[in-house]
Design a protein around this nucleic acid. Structure first.
Lengths: 170, 170
DNA sequence: ACTCGCATGTATCAGATCGATATATTGTAA
DNA sequence: TTACAATATATCGATCTGATACATGCGAGT
Protein backbone atom coordinates (compact mmCIF):
# COMPACT_ATOMS: atom_id res chain seq x y z
CA UNK A 1 0.00 0.00 0.00
CA UNK A 2 2.92 2.32 -0.63
CA UNK A 3 5.66 3.42 1.70
CA UNK A 4 5.64 3.11 5.44
CA UNK A 5 7.88 3.02 8.48
CA UNK A 6 7.53 0.33 11.11
CA UNK A 7 5.85 2.86 13.32
CA UNK A 8 3.23 3.65 10.68
CA UNK A 9 2.58 -0.01 9.99
CA UNK A 10 1.82 -0.56 13.62
CA UNK A 11 -0.70 2.29 13.52
CA UNK A 12 -2.51 0.49 10.71
CA UNK A 13 -2.82 -2.51 12.99
CA UNK A 14 -3.81 -0.42 15.98
CA UNK A 15 -6.43 1.93 14.56
CA UNK A 16 -6.43 1.46 10.85
CA UNK A 17 -8.08 -0.84 8.36
CA UNK A 18 -6.40 -3.97 9.72
CA UNK A 19 -7.36 -3.45 13.33
CA UNK A 20 -10.58 -5.48 13.14
CA UNK A 21 -9.06 -8.77 12.13
CA UNK A 22 -5.32 -8.72 12.79
CA UNK A 23 -2.86 -7.54 15.33
CA UNK A 24 0.80 -6.70 15.39
CA UNK A 25 3.09 -5.01 17.83
CA UNK A 26 6.63 -3.73 17.42
CA UNK A 27 7.99 -7.07 18.52
CA UNK A 28 6.44 -8.64 15.44
CA UNK A 29 6.82 -5.82 12.95
CA UNK A 30 10.48 -4.87 13.27
CA UNK A 31 11.81 -8.44 13.09
CA UNK A 32 9.47 -9.08 10.14
CA UNK A 33 10.72 -6.01 8.27
CA UNK A 34 14.31 -7.13 8.83
CA UNK A 35 13.51 -10.60 7.57
CA UNK A 36 11.67 -9.24 4.54
CA UNK A 37 14.57 -6.91 3.74
CA UNK A 38 17.06 -9.76 4.05
CA UNK A 39 14.90 -11.93 1.77
CA UNK A 40 14.69 -9.11 -0.78
CA UNK A 41 10.91 -8.67 -0.64
CA UNK A 42 10.94 -5.06 0.57
CA UNK A 43 13.23 -2.13 -0.15
CA UNK A 44 14.39 0.02 2.71
CA UNK A 45 15.67 3.60 2.46
CA UNK A 46 16.94 5.43 5.50
CA UNK A 47 15.93 9.05 5.94
CA UNK A 48 17.65 11.33 8.40
CA UNK A 49 15.24 13.81 9.95
CA UNK A 50 15.64 17.12 11.68
CA UNK A 51 14.40 17.12 15.26
CA UNK A 52 13.10 13.57 14.91
CA UNK A 53 14.73 10.15 15.07
CA UNK A 54 15.90 8.73 11.76
CA UNK A 55 13.31 6.93 9.68
CA UNK A 56 13.54 3.68 7.83
CA UNK A 57 11.00 3.79 5.05
CA UNK A 58 9.98 0.42 3.64
CA UNK A 59 8.23 -0.41 0.40
CA UNK A 60 7.16 -3.74 -1.07
CA UNK A 61 9.12 -4.42 -4.27
CA UNK A 62 8.25 -6.63 -7.23
CA UNK A 63 9.50 -9.78 -5.52
CA UNK A 64 7.46 -8.90 -2.49
CA UNK A 65 4.34 -8.29 -4.52
CA UNK A 66 4.74 -11.67 -6.15
CA UNK A 67 5.17 -13.28 -2.74
CA UNK A 68 1.97 -11.55 -1.60
CA UNK A 69 0.06 -12.88 -4.60
CA UNK A 70 1.48 -16.33 -3.93
CA UNK A 71 0.33 -16.13 -0.31
CA UNK A 72 -3.14 -15.05 -1.47
CA UNK A 73 -3.29 -18.27 -3.47
CA UNK A 74 -2.93 -20.47 -0.42
CA UNK A 75 -5.79 -21.59 1.82
CA UNK A 76 -6.60 -19.16 4.62
CA UNK A 77 -6.41 -20.29 8.24
CA UNK A 78 -9.59 -20.48 10.28
CA UNK A 79 -10.97 -17.33 11.84
CA UNK A 80 -10.74 -17.18 15.58
CA UNK A 81 -12.54 -15.07 18.08
CA UNK A 82 -10.72 -14.68 21.35
CA UNK A 83 -12.55 -13.18 24.27
CA UNK A 84 -11.50 -12.84 27.85
CA UNK A 85 -14.92 -11.43 28.68
CA UNK A 86 -16.72 -14.53 27.42
CA UNK A 87 -14.36 -16.67 29.46
CA UNK A 88 -15.38 -14.71 32.54
CA UNK A 89 -19.09 -14.75 31.71
CA UNK A 90 -18.88 -18.51 31.26
CA UNK A 91 -18.53 -18.52 35.03
CA UNK A 92 -21.30 -15.94 35.48
CA UNK A 93 -22.87 -18.04 38.23
CA UNK A 94 -19.85 -17.27 40.42
CA UNK A 95 -20.06 -13.50 39.87
CA UNK A 96 -22.26 -10.99 41.64
CA UNK A 97 -25.06 -9.33 39.64
CA UNK A 98 -23.35 -5.96 40.16
CA UNK A 99 -20.10 -7.27 38.77
CA UNK A 100 -21.89 -8.80 35.78
CA UNK A 101 -23.65 -5.54 35.04
CA UNK A 102 -20.42 -3.58 35.19
CA UNK A 103 -18.57 -6.02 32.96
CA UNK A 104 -21.28 -6.07 30.32
CA UNK A 105 -21.91 -2.32 30.42
CA UNK A 106 -18.23 -1.64 29.91
CA UNK A 107 -18.12 -3.92 26.90
CA UNK A 108 -21.26 -2.34 25.47
CA UNK A 109 -19.63 1.07 25.72
CA UNK A 110 -16.48 -0.31 24.13
CA UNK A 111 -18.35 -1.71 21.14
CA UNK A 112 -20.37 1.51 20.72
CA UNK A 113 -17.18 3.57 20.66
CA UNK A 114 -15.56 1.18 18.23
CA UNK A 115 -18.54 1.29 15.86
CA UNK A 116 -18.71 5.09 16.07
CA UNK A 117 -15.04 5.28 15.17
CA UNK A 118 -15.49 2.83 12.32
CA UNK A 119 -18.36 4.82 10.86
CA UNK A 120 -15.88 7.66 10.33
CA UNK A 121 -13.44 5.57 8.30
CA UNK A 122 -16.11 4.00 6.14
CA UNK A 123 -14.19 4.32 2.85
CA UNK A 124 -15.68 5.49 -0.42
CA UNK A 125 -17.59 3.66 -3.11
CA UNK A 126 -14.84 3.25 -5.70
CA UNK A 127 -12.05 0.70 -6.00
CA UNK A 128 -10.30 -0.82 -4.22
CA UNK A 129 -13.32 -2.85 -3.17
CA UNK A 130 -11.59 -5.22 -0.73
CA UNK A 131 -11.24 -2.74 2.12
CA UNK A 132 -14.90 -1.77 2.02
CA UNK A 133 -16.02 -5.39 2.13
CA UNK A 134 -13.74 -6.11 5.05
CA UNK A 135 -14.88 -2.97 6.83
CA UNK A 136 -18.50 -4.00 6.39
CA UNK A 137 -17.73 -7.43 7.79
CA UNK A 138 -16.20 -5.89 10.88
CA UNK A 139 -19.20 -3.63 11.39
CA UNK A 140 -21.63 -6.54 10.99
CA UNK A 141 -19.82 -8.69 13.53
CA UNK A 142 -19.41 -5.91 16.08
CA UNK A 143 -23.05 -4.89 15.72
CA UNK A 144 -24.13 -8.47 16.34
CA UNK A 145 -21.97 -8.67 19.46
CA UNK A 146 -23.26 -5.32 20.73
CA UNK A 147 -26.86 -6.21 20.05
CA UNK A 148 -26.53 -9.54 21.82
CA UNK A 149 -25.06 -7.93 24.91
CA UNK A 150 -27.76 -5.24 24.95
CA UNK A 151 -30.68 -7.60 24.54
CA UNK A 152 -29.46 -10.50 26.72
CA UNK A 153 -27.81 -8.60 29.56
CA UNK A 154 -30.90 -8.21 31.72
CA UNK A 155 -31.97 -11.84 31.34
CA UNK A 156 -28.55 -13.15 32.37
CA UNK A 157 -28.32 -10.94 35.43
CA UNK A 158 -31.86 -11.77 36.44
CA UNK A 159 -31.33 -15.52 36.15
CA UNK A 160 -28.06 -15.44 38.06
CA UNK A 161 -29.55 -13.27 40.82
CA UNK A 162 -32.52 -15.62 41.23
CA UNK A 163 -30.30 -18.69 41.37
CA UNK A 164 -28.04 -17.09 43.96
CA UNK A 165 -31.01 -16.04 46.09
CA UNK A 166 -32.45 -19.55 45.94
CA UNK A 167 -29.08 -20.93 47.03
CA UNK A 168 -28.83 -18.51 49.91
CA UNK A 169 -32.35 -19.38 51.08
CA UNK A 170 -31.47 -23.04 51.57
CA UNK B 1 -15.80 -28.22 36.09
CA UNK B 2 -14.76 -31.48 37.72
CA UNK B 3 -11.98 -33.85 36.76
CA UNK B 4 -10.15 -33.93 33.47
CA UNK B 5 -6.96 -35.07 31.82
CA UNK B 6 -4.88 -32.76 29.67
CA UNK B 7 -6.23 -34.56 26.64
CA UNK B 8 -9.82 -33.93 27.67
CA UNK B 9 -9.13 -30.29 28.41
CA UNK B 10 -7.83 -29.82 24.94
CA UNK B 11 -11.02 -31.31 23.54
CA UNK B 12 -13.00 -28.67 25.41
CA UNK B 13 -10.96 -26.05 23.60
CA UNK B 14 -11.22 -27.85 20.27
CA UNK B 15 -14.90 -28.74 20.08
CA UNK B 16 -16.43 -27.95 23.42
CA UNK B 17 -17.91 -24.93 25.11
CA UNK B 18 -14.68 -22.93 25.03
CA UNK B 19 -13.99 -23.37 21.35
CA UNK B 20 -15.78 -20.17 20.28
CA UNK B 21 -13.67 -17.74 22.23
CA UNK B 22 -10.44 -19.42 23.34
CA UNK B 23 -7.82 -21.76 22.06
CA UNK B 24 -5.27 -24.03 23.64
CA UNK B 25 -3.00 -26.74 22.30
CA UNK B 26 -0.96 -29.33 24.13
CA UNK B 27 1.98 -26.99 24.15
CA UNK B 28 0.01 -24.64 26.38
CA UNK B 29 -2.01 -27.10 28.42
CA UNK B 30 0.59 -29.54 29.73
CA UNK B 31 3.03 -26.86 30.91
CA UNK B 32 0.11 -25.01 32.51
CA UNK B 33 -1.05 -28.12 34.39
CA UNK B 34 2.47 -28.69 35.67
CA UNK B 35 2.72 -25.09 36.82
CA UNK B 36 -0.69 -25.23 38.51
CA UNK B 37 0.23 -28.48 40.26
CA UNK B 38 3.51 -27.00 41.47
CA UNK B 39 1.68 -23.90 42.73
CA UNK B 40 -0.84 -26.09 44.56
CA UNK B 41 -3.91 -24.90 42.63
CA UNK B 42 -4.86 -28.29 41.16
CA UNK B 43 -4.60 -31.84 42.51
CA UNK B 44 -3.29 -34.58 40.27
CA UNK B 45 -3.91 -38.31 40.64
CA UNK B 46 -2.28 -40.80 38.30
CA UNK B 47 -4.39 -43.66 37.00
CA UNK B 48 -2.89 -46.70 35.29
CA UNK B 49 -5.08 -48.03 32.48
CA UNK B 50 -5.35 -51.32 30.67
CA UNK B 51 -4.58 -51.10 26.96
CA UNK B 52 -4.29 -47.32 27.15
CA UNK B 53 -1.53 -44.97 28.23
CA UNK B 54 -1.58 -43.91 31.87
CA UNK B 55 -3.81 -41.00 32.76
CA UNK B 56 -3.11 -38.01 34.92
CA UNK B 57 -6.42 -36.75 36.20
CA UNK B 58 -6.46 -33.15 37.38
CA UNK B 59 -8.98 -31.33 39.53
CA UNK B 60 -9.10 -27.73 40.72
CA UNK B 61 -8.79 -27.60 44.52
CA UNK B 62 -9.91 -24.93 46.96
CA UNK B 63 -6.82 -22.79 46.41
CA UNK B 64 -7.38 -23.04 42.69
CA UNK B 65 -11.01 -22.06 42.97
CA UNK B 66 -10.05 -19.01 44.98
CA UNK B 67 -7.46 -18.09 42.37
CA UNK B 68 -10.15 -18.43 39.69
CA UNK B 69 -12.48 -16.11 41.60
CA UNK B 70 -9.63 -13.67 42.04
CA UNK B 71 -8.95 -13.74 38.30
CA UNK B 72 -12.65 -13.15 37.60
CA UNK B 73 -12.36 -9.96 39.65
CA UNK B 74 -9.75 -8.44 37.37
CA UNK B 75 -10.52 -6.47 34.22
CA UNK B 76 -10.88 -8.60 31.09
CA UNK B 77 -8.63 -8.03 28.10
CA UNK B 78 -10.13 -6.73 24.87
CA UNK B 79 -11.82 -9.16 22.53
CA UNK B 80 -10.01 -9.78 19.29
CA UNK B 81 -11.14 -11.19 16.03
CA UNK B 82 -8.37 -12.68 13.94
CA UNK B 83 -9.10 -13.59 10.35
CA UNK B 84 -6.80 -14.74 7.63
CA UNK B 85 -9.70 -14.69 5.21
CA UNK B 86 -10.41 -11.00 5.81
CA UNK B 87 -6.74 -10.27 5.31
CA UNK B 88 -6.94 -11.95 1.92
CA UNK B 89 -10.21 -10.29 0.97
CA UNK B 90 -8.70 -6.93 1.85
CA UNK B 91 -6.70 -7.48 -1.34
CA UNK B 92 -9.74 -8.70 -3.25
CA UNK B 93 -8.85 -6.46 -6.18
CA UNK B 94 -5.79 -8.65 -6.80
CA UNK B 95 -7.79 -11.90 -6.81
CA UNK B 96 -9.76 -13.44 -9.66
CA UNK B 97 -13.57 -13.57 -9.33
CA UNK B 98 -13.38 -17.38 -9.37
CA UNK B 99 -10.92 -17.39 -6.51
CA UNK B 100 -13.05 -14.94 -4.54
CA UNK B 101 -16.12 -17.08 -5.02
CA UNK B 102 -14.33 -20.20 -3.88
CA UNK B 103 -12.86 -18.53 -0.81
CA UNK B 104 -16.19 -17.08 0.29
CA UNK B 105 -18.19 -20.22 -0.47
CA UNK B 106 -15.81 -22.31 1.59
CA UNK B 107 -16.14 -19.97 4.53
CA UNK B 108 -19.93 -19.94 4.19
CA UNK B 109 -19.93 -23.74 4.36
CA UNK B 110 -17.60 -23.63 7.34
CA UNK B 111 -19.87 -21.28 9.28
CA UNK B 112 -22.98 -23.30 8.38
CA UNK B 113 -21.35 -26.47 9.67
CA UNK B 114 -20.20 -24.74 12.81
CA UNK B 115 -23.66 -23.35 13.54
CA UNK B 116 -25.28 -26.74 12.88
CA UNK B 117 -22.86 -28.34 15.31
CA UNK B 118 -23.49 -25.62 17.89
CA UNK B 119 -27.25 -26.10 17.67
CA UNK B 120 -26.70 -29.66 18.96
CA UNK B 121 -24.83 -28.53 22.07
CA UNK B 122 -27.28 -25.79 22.94
CA UNK B 123 -27.41 -26.53 26.68
CA UNK B 124 -30.55 -26.63 28.77
CA UNK B 125 -32.54 -23.89 30.45
CA UNK B 126 -31.39 -24.39 34.06
CA UNK B 127 -28.27 -23.22 35.85
CA UNK B 128 -25.44 -22.75 35.27
CA UNK B 129 -26.49 -19.77 33.16
CA UNK B 130 -23.05 -18.59 32.05
CA UNK B 131 -22.47 -21.28 29.42
CA UNK B 132 -25.81 -20.63 27.75
CA UNK B 133 -25.15 -16.89 27.53
CA UNK B 134 -21.72 -17.51 26.07
CA UNK B 135 -23.11 -20.06 23.63
CA UNK B 136 -25.74 -17.58 22.46
CA UNK B 137 -23.08 -14.93 21.95
CA UNK B 138 -21.10 -17.30 19.74
CA UNK B 139 -24.17 -18.16 17.70
CA UNK B 140 -25.07 -14.48 17.26
CA UNK B 141 -21.60 -13.54 16.05
CA UNK B 142 -21.26 -16.50 13.70
CA UNK B 143 -24.71 -15.88 12.26
CA UNK B 144 -23.80 -12.25 11.61
CA UNK B 145 -20.59 -13.31 9.85
CA UNK B 146 -22.41 -15.93 7.78
CA UNK B 147 -25.19 -13.56 6.85
CA UNK B 148 -22.75 -10.86 5.76
CA UNK B 149 -20.86 -13.27 3.54
CA UNK B 150 -24.07 -14.58 1.99
CA UNK B 151 -25.60 -11.19 1.27
CA UNK B 152 -22.44 -9.32 0.20
CA UNK B 153 -20.62 -12.00 -1.75
CA UNK B 154 -22.24 -11.32 -5.12
CA UNK B 155 -21.76 -7.55 -4.89
CA UNK B 156 -18.05 -7.88 -4.10
CA UNK B 157 -17.38 -10.32 -6.92
CA UNK B 158 -19.37 -8.21 -9.36
CA UNK B 159 -17.53 -5.00 -8.45
CA UNK B 160 -14.12 -6.64 -8.66
CA UNK B 161 -14.94 -8.28 -12.00
CA UNK B 162 -16.12 -4.97 -13.49
CA UNK B 163 -13.03 -3.13 -12.28
CA UNK B 164 -10.72 -5.79 -13.69
CA UNK B 165 -12.54 -5.75 -17.04
CA UNK B 166 -12.30 -1.98 -17.19
CA UNK B 167 -8.56 -2.23 -16.48
CA UNK B 168 -8.07 -4.85 -19.15
CA UNK B 169 -9.92 -2.72 -21.71
CA UNK B 170 -7.50 0.17 -21.33
C1' DA C 1 8.11 28.77 33.78
C1' DC C 2 7.74 24.00 34.55
C1' DT C 3 6.31 19.56 34.37
C1' DC C 4 3.70 15.86 32.46
C1' DG C 5 2.18 13.24 29.02
C1' DC C 6 1.66 12.35 24.12
C1' DA C 7 3.30 11.67 19.29
C1' DT C 8 7.16 10.23 16.48
C1' DG C 9 10.61 6.80 15.71
C1' DT C 10 13.84 3.06 16.72
C1' DA C 11 14.56 -1.58 19.02
C1' DT C 12 15.04 -5.64 22.38
C1' DC C 13 13.65 -9.13 25.81
C1' DA C 14 11.28 -12.51 28.72
C1' DG C 15 7.53 -15.20 28.73
C1' DA C 16 3.58 -17.28 26.43
C1' DT C 17 1.71 -19.45 22.60
C1' DC C 18 1.34 -22.24 18.14
C1' DG C 19 1.91 -26.05 15.19
C1' DA C 20 4.43 -29.87 14.31
C1' DT C 21 6.37 -33.83 15.91
C1' DA C 22 7.51 -38.10 18.86
C1' DT C 23 5.84 -42.27 21.32
C1' DA C 24 2.68 -46.19 22.10
C1' DT C 25 -1.57 -49.00 21.52
C1' DT C 26 -6.25 -50.21 20.00
C1' DG C 27 -10.06 -50.06 16.99
C1' DT C 28 -12.01 -49.10 12.46
C1' DA C 29 -12.56 -48.11 7.67
C1' DA C 30 -10.62 -48.19 2.76
C1' DT D 1 -3.51 -55.15 4.93
C1' DT D 2 -2.76 -50.90 5.26
C1' DA D 3 -3.76 -46.61 6.77
C1' DC D 4 -5.95 -43.59 9.72
C1' DA D 5 -8.58 -41.92 13.91
C1' DA D 6 -8.85 -41.95 18.96
C1' DT D 7 -6.68 -42.11 23.54
C1' DA D 8 -2.87 -40.28 26.19
C1' DT D 9 1.53 -38.39 27.28
C1' DA D 10 5.11 -34.66 26.22
C1' DT D 11 8.71 -31.55 23.96
C1' DC D 12 10.69 -28.22 20.68
C1' DG D 13 11.61 -24.40 17.59
C1' DA D 14 9.64 -20.45 15.80
C1' DT D 15 6.79 -16.95 16.45
C1' DC D 16 3.88 -13.63 18.94
C1' DT D 17 2.72 -10.58 22.92
C1' DG D 18 3.36 -6.94 26.13
C1' DA D 19 6.45 -4.36 28.52
C1' DT D 20 10.27 -1.72 28.53
C1' DA D 21 14.22 1.29 26.92
C1' DC D 22 15.96 5.27 24.42
C1' DA D 23 15.70 10.07 22.31
C1' DT D 24 13.20 14.37 21.23
C1' DG D 25 9.65 18.08 20.37
C1' DC D 26 5.17 19.81 21.10
C1' DG D 27 1.17 21.18 23.47
C1' DA D 28 -1.70 21.34 27.75
C1' DG D 29 -2.28 22.11 32.21
C1' DT D 30 -0.66 24.29 36.97
Amino acid sequence: MGEATGYEIRKHFEDGPFSHFAEGGFGSIYPALNRLTKDGLVDCTEQAQDKRPDKKVYRLNENGFEALLEALGRAPAEDRYKSDLLFMLFFADHLSPARLERLIDERIRFYRDKLAHMADCAGGAGPPHGPRFVHGFGVAVYEAALSYLETQKAALIDRVARAQNADAAE
